[in-house]
């Protein structure tokens, strides 16, 4: 188990630049568990139709566009959120993680991406037989 944890320490790394005025960098949690690595990103305002996740063997990119309905003639009084495009890039170790088996779900603006560990790296319970 220890070895897997150590190896997986680099399994998902973040790449790309920090957030700038042109796009929003979604706040994220990244954690490892028995079966793999999970990334949770806050992307409020993004619907499933406006979400894009690209992955290849070594990279994972998440992008989404905010859509909110506003009445016409709206004048902004205050804006903490000044961009409508989210983007965050990650590098993924294809040797340790099974990128073909990535699963993602979006609910109430929270995106959860599960990347399973390759089968040979998952902890295996070894039965001890007596007798």
């Amino acid at each position: 188990m220890n070895q897997v944890t150590e190896q997986s320490r680099d399994a998902v790394r973040q790449t790309g630049e920090a957030a700038g005025p042109t796009h929003l960098r979604p706040a994220g949690d990244i954690f490892e568990h028995e079966h793999g690595i999970t990334i949770v990103l806050d992307m409020p305002g993004v619907s499933k139709e406006r979400l894009n996740i690209h992955s290849d063997r070594n990279a994972l990119t998440v992008e989404g566009d905010v859509e909110i309905s506003m009445p016409e003639d709206t004048e902004s009084l205050h804006a903490d959120v000044r961009a409508t495009h989210y983007r965050r890039d990650f590098s993924v170790s294809g040797e340790q993680l099974d990128v073909d088996a990535i699963e993602a779900s979006l609910r109430d603006g929270v995106l959860r991406i599960d990347i399973p560990k390759r089968a040979e790296l998952r902890p295996r319970r070894i039965e001890v037989r007596t007798g």
């Binding site: 320490r9 998902v12 706040a27 994220g28 954690f31 568990h33 949770v40 806050d42 929270v110």
Partner: peptide
Amino acid sequence: ATEEASTWYRRERF
């Protein structure tokens, strides 16, 4: 978000 984590790499969400 979770109780299942064994190791955290990032924890930014409120």
